[in-house]
Every structure is written in C-alpha cells, then in structure tokens.
Design a binder for these strands. Structure first.
Lengths: 208, 208
DNA sequence: TTCCTTGTTGTCAGATTTTGGGATGTCCCC
DNA sequence: GGGGACATCCCAAAATCTGACAACAAGGAA
C-alpha cells in the first residue's frame, strides 16, 4: 500500500528536487504539491494525504501556522516539518502545533523515505540533535518555578488541591482541618507569591 | 578534565559491570556508587558529581523520585536514567523529574561513555526509539482538548482572559462589554464544558 | 535557658468576586 | 422563520479574598 503524501515547499528548486526524490520511490504516492500555506489549506482536502512534508519558512502563513490549522481539518494526517534550520523555537512551536516529525533538508534522500514510513506507522522521526532540543523544551516547560521554594510543605499541599479546583470546604475535609485554616494557608500562599487569586497563583507556579 | 560521575544501581552484578566500564575510561572519575536512593540522597553531597547514572527500578524510593529530590540539592548536576525498559510512563516521568538523558542498559559501553560526555556538555543523549516516545508525551501533553471546539470564538476569547486571571469586571472593560455579559458568556462556557468553576474549566482545556 | 522565627492550626468580621437562575433583544446565516 | 452567537439586565446565594488576632510546637540563635 502506497503512502499518500503531500509536499508544501515554496522554493522552486527544492520543490523540484523533492518531487524527484518522492516520485522515485514506489512506496510513496505524491498526491499533491503546494507552494504556499494558503493554497494548501484550500485544496489539500481534495485528496487527503496520510503524511505531509511541510516547509517551515513559507511566504505568508508559516508552515507552523499551517499545521495548526490543518490539524483541525485532517486529524489523522501526520505532519513532518522540513527545514534548513535547527532553531529551538521553531522546533518547539512545531511540536506544539502538532507536528510529529522534524527533519532537516540536508537529510539524505534514503532517510527521508525511511522517515515517511516511520511517521506513517506512528513513529516520530527526529535526528538526535533535534531530540536534544525537544528534551530541552520539555524541561523548560516543566521546570518548577523558584517561587515554589518559598512555600512550606503544607502550603504546597494546599496549592496542589487548589490547582485541582477543589473548594475550600473540600480541601478542609480532605486534609482534616477546618475551612478557616485552609483559608489562612491560602492567604499566606498568596502573600508569598504576591498574587490575589487562585488563578494568578496557579499561573505563577505552573507556567503555561 | 575528568567528569565527576556517580552511579546508583541496586543490582549487584550490573553495578559491578558498570563500575568496571566506568573506571576503565580515563575521562571519567567515578566519585561515588550507591545501591539505593536513600543512601544516595544522604551521601551524594559529600562529593558532588557532574553526572549521575540513575537506575529507575530501585528498592524503596524509585530512581525517578530520587532525581526529583536530588534536583533540589544539586541543581547543576545532570541526571541520566538507565533502565532495561522502554516504558512510556517511566520516560515521561523521568523527564518531568528533571532527567536530561535516558539510555537503555543494553547500550554498548562505548556509547555510554559518549552519552556521559554529551550530557555533561548540555546535550540530551537518548536513543531514537526513546525520542519517539518523548514526542508522543509532548504531544499528548500539549494537545488541545476537543472541548475547545464546542466554544464560540467569543467564548474562547473570554476563556483566554479567564486563564490569565482577570476578573469579570476587568474582562468587561477590556472587551468593552458589561460585566453582566461577561458573566453570561462564562455561564455558557461552564455549561458547555460541564464544569462549575474557573479552575475546573481551565484544567479541562489546558490539561496539566 | 530564653528568645525568636517559622509552620500549623484556629477564630471573627467584612468586602468582593464568582456562580446559578431567568428574561429580553439584536444580528446574521442557513 | 428558526437557530446560534452575542449582548444586556435583574436577583439571590455561595465562594473567595482581606485583615487582624491568637495558640501551640519545633528548631535555631543569643
């Protein structure tokens, strides 16, 4: 079974050489090629691909924005970003947009094919150097704020419940303390974090 | 300059063979070896390593919990998880705990050395199969909830402000609508999301 | 030891915010 | 015309926030 593939690339020369590479493989069925995000969004639905190779640097809408929008239209399609740069932010944003693969344009043709097959089968083809940046992004995203250190163990515990959306009353009975005590803790937490509400506190701790 | 390295591994045989491997390299200075998390936490501060090789399956405290605690004590030390299993949850949890590398125990000795050097230099050594799982974890973490589709553009806009911690009054003046209208929208949002409070709504949309 | 700080628990009171219910109207699109 | 999104208003009740105060235990410093 051939893998229905689509290509989005604005550079004429690169597009041409990619088409050559892709059509030379019997496993790949290149169903559409676009030169910009807008055309792609308008017409990609006419023959839905299983895998899309998406350039990041497109004129107008970027490849990342394009993926964000296409994800809604084509929920089962896999997106592989394709770029010359190994830029941290671009990688991060691409993954956030819903891309599952990220390869460099310098990748040898044979590996591109392998990557397409891999992504089609639910894998996530990325080079080791990209993997590094993913982990980095992951860690910065999950890094606990320094402010958390200001709080006492009990306060952290209360904050945990706050983040789950429990009411004061519920927290009190879960921890076997009075609602008034819960309030006192929360007051102290807010004071330490320099905030005035639950949502502000949570944003300060679990930064989105 | 030798890389100060520490090893935490409970299995006697594996510990022995790891020690042999590590001490055979001139680039590595094995400063301590522990058989469990508790000993490690108590004594690792005596000679602070730059890199820690941490087994995941330890008796008592797990390697993951151990990393969580050590990260506070040794903020600049890099942690490399070392395990026989390629288990999604373990990988995810390790990264959340603050590990930056993840290798399998089946990794050839030479690659272990390379990984240690890499992690010391700010890299994140992981095998391609692990990388895949990281991306997967990343995507499930960042995937926008389907519930978001239920909301009208205006409601999404209001929700955005809610997530920032604005009060009804503030949202109203920012959007140039009355507080009462803001309330109506929020009521409709809560109805659609089947929740009863701001925090619940936010948890449903931006799942942590 | 005494003193002081921090953490934990508790209370009282008042102001503000949030939530739930119902009602009404406009505008636009199918 | 009907339905959805958007906007406005009212009332009432629940939850949250703010301030001030106090008791007790644990741990460190003078």
């Amino acid at each position: 079974m051939k893998i229905k593939t689509s290509l989005v690339e604005d550079d004429r020369d690169l597009q041409k050489s990619m088409i050559e590479i892709l059509t030379s493989y019997p496993d790949i069925d290149l169903v559409s090629v676009f030169s910009n995000a807008e055309d792609c969004i308008d017409h990609i639905g006419e023959n839905i691909p299983e895998v899309v190779l998406m350039d990041i640097n497109l004129p107008g809408l970027s490849g990342i924005e394009c993926v964000t929008l296409l994800k809604l239209k084509l929920p089962t399609t896999q997106f592989m970003m394709c770029t010359v740069y190994e830029h941290d932010d671009a990688i991060f944003d691409s993954l956030c947009a819903g891309a599952t693969g990220y390869i460099l344009k310098t990748t040898p043709p044979n590996d591109i094919l392998k990557s397409i097959i891999e992504i089609k089968n639910g894998g996530s083809p990325i080079s080791p150097s990209i993997a590094r940046k993913v982990i980095k992004a992951f860690n910065t995203m999950r890094a606990p704020s320094d402010e958390l250190a200001l709080l006492s163990p009990r306060e952290k515990e209360i904050l945990e419940y706050l983040s789950k959306g429990y009411r004061y009353k519920e927290i009190g009975s879960l921890l076997n303390i009075s609602t008034e005590t819960v309030r006192t803790h929360i007051r102290n937490i807010y004071e330490k974090l320099q905030v005035q509400s639950r949502t502000e506190a949570l944003n300060k701790i679990y930064k989105r």
